[in-house]
Amino acid sequence: MLECAFARPRQTPVSTKTTPYLVRAWRLTRMLLHVLHGALILAVRYPRLTNPERAVITRAWARKMLDIFGVRLAIRGDNPGFYPANTLLVANHVSWLDIIALSGGTVSRFVAKKEIRTWPAIGWMAANGGTLFIDRSNRRDASRVNGQLAEALEQGGCMSVFPEGTTSDGFGLLPFKSSLFESAVIAGSQVQPVAIRYLDETGALTDKVAFIGEATIAQTLGRLLATRRLTVELVYGQRLQAGAPGLATRFELSAAAREEILAALGLKEERVEAPCDQAADPALAPN
């Protein structure tokens, strides 16, 4: 018997109406132009700016992109600021859209799987935006990334990780991998849990933009462009100070952060008989 994702009952959307094709084409055109604008900023302006100055530009760019997609950003809880120093953000992971949503609330640099570095355009933008890349097939690579994370945090940076190690449908929460929490222990950082929820126009939880299974970026983008209205909700939990009583190790920080996100998602832990797909992959097992 395996401890798996902790899920709420699925909610069936009331409305199935989609946007007209002209609206989708207009959104796509605006998106491509905004991506080109972002690439120009990364190539020309970013190298000359401080991290706080970059954060101001990044948040504005992210919020405009959400507006282009017709996505409303809703923030609940105590947002620590647009670029809190020495802070490790940890969030559940549903979609590539999570990165844009999080940047619209609290700007940070991200840790991503190394494969993204080879993606056309996206890989270049991620690398030039300060993303750290990790080889998830090699457990020893976590040590290297932890060193880079800790150094960035100690220098006043704000970094983000998705400790599930993969995406889910947003209806549950997968087990956390605790390895990258070690960076917060080393740097004496604050850990900020953030729960990400996607809601349709009726206010029901939806997996329409979930990047799971055999879905491709193009498919999820197509579903997003066809969605009339979508809300992404960021729920900030209680901040956790690494090194405080009960939060001295990466395991304690991971467990406490997961409890905060579970509570924000309105989930309760339970054991299920059916194993998760991720449980079959040793590289994704919690540690």
Rank of each mutant, 00 (worst) to 15 (best):
residue 264 A to R: 10
residue 157 G to K: 03
residue 115 E to A: 06
residue 145 V to Q: 08
residue 160 S to Q: 04
residue 261 I to V: 10
residue 79 N to R: 15
residue 277 D to E: 14
residue 150 A to L: 03
residue 16 T to A: 13
residue 226 A to R: 11
residue 274 A to Y: 12
residue 41 I to H: 13
residue 153 L to C: 03
residue 278 Q to N: 14
residue 244 A to D: 03
residue 183 S to D: 01
residue 69 F to I: 02
residue 112 A to T: 09
residue 106 T to F: 06
residue 224 L to H: 05
residue 142 A to I: 05
residue 18 T to P: 07
residue 63 R to L: 06
residue 135 D to Y: 10
residue 63 R to V: 09
residue 187 A to R: 01
residue 185 V to M: 06
residue 278 Q to D: 14
residue 11 Q to G: 08
residue 189 S to T: 05
residue 42 L to N: 02
residue 274 A to D: 12
residue 271 R to I: 11
residue 165 G to K: 01
residue 273 E to N: 15
residue 209 V to D: 00
residue 281 D to Y: 10
residue 216 T to E: 07
residue 277 D to P: 12
residue 223 R to F: 05
residue 275 P to Q: 15
residue 76 R to I: 09
residue 158 C to Y: 00
residue 15 S to L: 11
residue 171 F to D: 02
residue 196 I to V: 13
residue 179 S to G: 12
residue 283 A to F: 09
residue 254 S to K: 04
residue 220 T to Y: 04
residue 7 A to R: 15
residue 219 Q to T: 13
residue 256 A to C: 08
residue 149 L to Y: 00
residue 237 G to M: 05
residue 122 I to R: 07
residue 25 A to C: 10
residue 39 A to D: 09
residue 272 V to G: 04
residue 19 T to I: 08
residue 155 Q to D: 13
residue 49 L to G: 00
residue 219 Q to A: 11
residue 179 S to D: 10
residue 171 F to K: 06
residue 65 M to I: 07
residue 276 C to H: 13
residue 156 G to Q: 04
residue 85 A to D: 06
residue 1 M to E: 15
residue 99 I to S: 05
residue 148 Q to V: 04
residue 87 T to E: 01
residue 144 R to T: 14
residue 113 K to G: 08
residue 27 R to W: 07
residue 71 V to G: 01
residue 148 Q to E: 13
residue 13 P to I: 06
residue 36 L to I: 10
residue 274 A to R: 15
residue 96 W to K: 09
residue 205 L to S: 12
residue 233 E to D: 06
residue 67 D to E: 07
residue 2 L to H: 15
residue 145 V to E: 03
residue 214 E to R: 15
residue 131 T to M: 05
residue 257 A to H: 01
residue 128 N to V: 07
residue 236 Y to L: 00
residue 153 L to W: 02
residue 10 R to V: 09
residue 111 V to F: 01
residue 179 S to Y: 09
residue 37 H to S: 14
residue 252 E to Y: 02
residue 84 P to E: 02
residue 185 V to I: 11
residue 262 L to T: 03
residue 180 L to F: 07
residue 72 R to V: 11
residue 134 I to R: 02
residue 121 A to I: 14
residue 265 L to E: 00
residue 164 E to F: 00
residue 163 P to I: 03
residue 103 S to K: 08
residue 230 L to T: 04
residue 241 Q to Y: 12
residue 171 F to Y: 14
residue 82 F to M: 14
residue 278 Q to V: 14
residue 108 S to Y: 05
residue 31 M to T: 15
residue 14 V to R: 15
residue 261 I to S: 02
residue 157 G to I: 01
residue 148 Q to C: 08
residue 10 R to D: 09
residue 245 P to T: 09
residue 16 T to C: 11
residue 47 P to W: 12
residue 149 L to H: 00
residue 159 M to G: 03
residue 29 T to K: 13
residue 263 A to I: 03
residue 69 F to A: 05
residue 160 S to P: 11
residue 277 D to M: 15
residue 254 S to G: 11
residue 123 G to S: 07
residue 178 S to C: 06
residue 34 H to N: 08
residue 218 A to H: 12
residue 287 N to K: 13
